[in-house]
Design a protein around this nucleic acid. Structure first.
Length: 218
DNA sequence: AGCCAGGACTGAG
DNA sequence: CTCAGTCATGGC
């Protein structure tokens, strides 16, 4: 176990050394991070950028405006992010959750059970929840995504990919990086960057600069 | 022309 | 609980 922790920290510094700091999350405000986190579900970030720009251009990137906007109008603004009907609802549901229970986004930071409560909002799964906690609220949670699972599996750090391995990895990484928010932010960003370049589903990479003995078994 | 992208929910078995 | 089906656009 301690062995895995050391290996994880090692991987983090190798990636950091190779790619350099990524400076995530790309977003100017906490709300923008939250909106981006929901919109980027199973969609490339490029698609989301357009939606964010649309919202900004219309001056709608604030909780009140987004809560009161017509569904049809929201659809057209976020259409590029795909699943626009679902995502419009998820956005509103989550903003309503904030409004009703906290009023301001900052108030969520002090809630001891914030992860649990966020996960209870429909449309917010583990990855989206942890993205919001880490990048919008600056809380020490690690974000596990498909790249992370794939990379860690090819590294030989986990056997299977399922919801249990998600929690396993999340806890391991949080411990390995001493719950340091800056490092947790950077590590996830680096894994995404590395995933896009060298650890995609297809084709299987045979010249990974980080993982010399890649298992390529997914 | 498919396949995949910074997922999550639902219903079936 | 595991898992296919569903949701949808854009880029390569």
């Amino acid at each position: 176990m301690q062995e895995k922790n050391d290996r994880i920290k090692e991987i983090y510094y190798e990636l950091l050394d190779f790619y350099g700091p990524q400076g995530w999350w790309p977003g100017e405000t906490r709300l923008e991070v939250i909106v981006g986190a929901i919109l980027t579900q199973n969609v490339s970030w490029k698609n989301v950028e357009k939606s964010i720009i649309n919202l900004k251009k219309e001056g709608l990137l604030n909780i009140n405006s987004l809560l009161n906007i017509e569904d049809e109008k929201l659809y057209t603004l976020i259409k590029s992010s795909g699943y626009f009907r679902q995502k419009a609802k998820r956005l509103k549901d989550f903003l309503r959750f904030i409004n009703d229970n906290y009023g301001r986004i900052e108030e969520m930071i002090n809630d001891r059970n914030i992860r649990e409560k966020i996960l209870n909002v429909k449309g917010i799964g583990k990855e989206t929840a942890d993205s919001i906690l880490l990048y919008a609220l600056d809380l020490p949670f690690f974000v596990v995504d498909t790249y992370t699972l794939r990379i860690f599996k090819r590294m030989g750090l986990i056997e299977d990919i399922n919801l249990k391995s998600y929690e396993e990895i999340r806890i391991m990484v949080e411990n390995s990086l001493d719950r340091n928010v800056k490092d947790l932010k950077e590590f996830h960003a680096l894994l995404v960057e590395h995933g896009k370049k060298y650890c995609k589903k297809e084709p299987l990479c045979d010249k990974c600069p980080i993982n010399k003995k890649c298992r390529k078994n997914i």
